[in-house]
Design a protein around this nucleic acid. Structure first.
Lengths: 182, 182
DNA sequence: CTACGCCTTCGAGCGCGCTCGAACGCAAAA
DNA sequence: TTTTGCGTTCGAGCGCGCTCGAAGGCGTAG
C-alpha cells in the first residue's frame, strides 16, 4: 500500500540535517566536562537561549543560582545540568506549569520519585502523540507537493492526470481523500 | 551502537494510537462525500475546532463563507475543503501569518503556483526539523525514564549500577552525557 | 576620569492564537 | 406568547512564554 511507502520515505527523509544547530550539538555533546562555574552569558551560549530567558527561568522558580561577590550570577555544574534538562523539556513542548511542578517535586525530596516518573511518562506520551501527528501532516504535505498542479478550487480533475506517468510513486486513494484543495 | 537501537524503538513506539481522536479520523476519512453545504456547528464538529475559531479564521481572511437567508453562515464543499487544509497546516505548526500569505497567493491566481510550492516546501522542511527535534528529545526522555533512580542532584553514581543487570538494553555513553540531572 | 562592557533588579510590553461575552435576530417548540 | 436554541457582529480579554527597557553597579582599558 502506497501510504506506507510514503510514510516510510517521510521518516527516512528525516535523516538529513538535524534541527539543532551543529554548534549547539557540539556544545551539548560533552556535558561530562563542564566547567566548575559559568557566567550567564556562557550558559546562554551553551543552551542557545538568551540571558533574559535564563533570568526568567530563575524568577519562575525552576532553578536557584548563586551570586558572586560582584552580585553576578554564578552557575555551578548542578544548575547547568538542571537547565540543560529544563530546556530540553521546553524544546519538546512541556509547558512551564508542568516544569514548575516537576521541579517542586524534585525539591520536595526523594519520596516524590514515583510522581516524577508519572510526569515524565506523561510527557513522553505527549511527545509521541505530537510526533505522530506531525508525521501524518508531513505525509499529507508531501503528497500535496508531489501532486501540485496549481488548483484554485476546482481541484478534482488534476489528481487523475499523473496515472501512467508515475513520476514519484504517488500514494493511494485514502490520502487523496484526506487532502483537499489549496 | 545502542543509541540507534533506542532511536529505532522510539520510532516504533509511535505505532500505538494516533494523536488524532478516532472520531476525528473517521470524520475526515471520507472527504469525497461531503454534504453540499454545512452549518458552522457541523464544520466545527468535523474539524474538531470551535465555531469561535471558525469565525476567527474567516475574519482573518483565510476563507470566505456565504450567508443564508437568515444571515447564518453556509459552508459549501469548497470552503470546507479549504478549512480542512488550513487546520491541517495549523496543526502542523504553520503560523497564521504564513497561512494568510498562502491564501493570498491562491486567491491571486494561477501565476503564483511556484511561490505557493515554495511555501509548502518550506513548511515541509520545518515539520521535518520539528519531528527530528522531538524524536531526539523523546529518546532523551525515554532514557531518563529507563534509568530513573530518583537522583536529586548527585546523579552520577546511579548511572553505573545497571551494568551487568542490563534490564532494558540501556543506550550508550553519548546519551548519558546528553542527559543531566533532574 | 571617562568610557565601555557586562552584569543586576524590576516591571511592563508584546506577539500569537484563540476565547469569550454582550447584545441581538430568527424560527420552531411548549 | 414566551421560551429555547442556534446563530449573528464586534470588541475586548486571556494565557503563554518570553522579551525588552530603564536605571544602576562594578571593574577594566584607554
Amino acid at each position: 500500500m502506497a501510504t506506507d511507502d510514503l510514510m516510510t520515505r517521510a521518516l527516512e527523509a528525516l535523516g538529513d540535517d538535524g534541527p539543532l544547530s551543529v554548534e549547539a550539538i557540539h556544545r551539548l555533546a560533552d556535558l561530562a566536562d563542564l566547567p566548575e562555574t559559568m557566567t550567564i552569558a556562557e550558559v546562554a551560549d551553551l543552551l542557545d537561549i538568551s540571558p533574559h530567558t535564563l533570568r526568567y527561568y530563575e524568577r519562575a522558580g525552576l532553578v536557584e543560582v548563586a551570586r558572586g561577590g560582584n552580585g553576578h550570577r554564578v552557575y555551578d555544574a548542578k544548575a547547568v545540568r538542571r537547565l540543560v534538562f529544563l530546556t530540553r523539556m521546553r524544546l519538546s513542548g512541556m509547558p512551564m506549569r508542568d516544569l514548575r511542578h516537576y521541579v517542586s517535586l524534585v525539591d520536595a525530596g526523594g519520596h516524590t520519585v514515583h510522581e516524577r516518573l508519572d510526569v515524565l511518562v506523561g510527557h513522553r506520551d505527549a511527545v509521541r502523540r505530537r510526533i505522530r501527528e506531525l508525521t501524518l501532516s508531513l505525509v499529507a504535505i508531501e503528497y500535496k507537493i508531489a501532486t501540485y498542479g496549481g488548483s484554485t478550487g476546482s481541484d478534482v480533475q488534476e489528481f487523475g492526470t499523473t496515472t501512467g506517468t508515475d513520476r514519484t510513486a504517488l500514494p493511494d486513494e485514502s490520502l487523496r481523500r484526506a487532502l483537499p484543495a489549496e
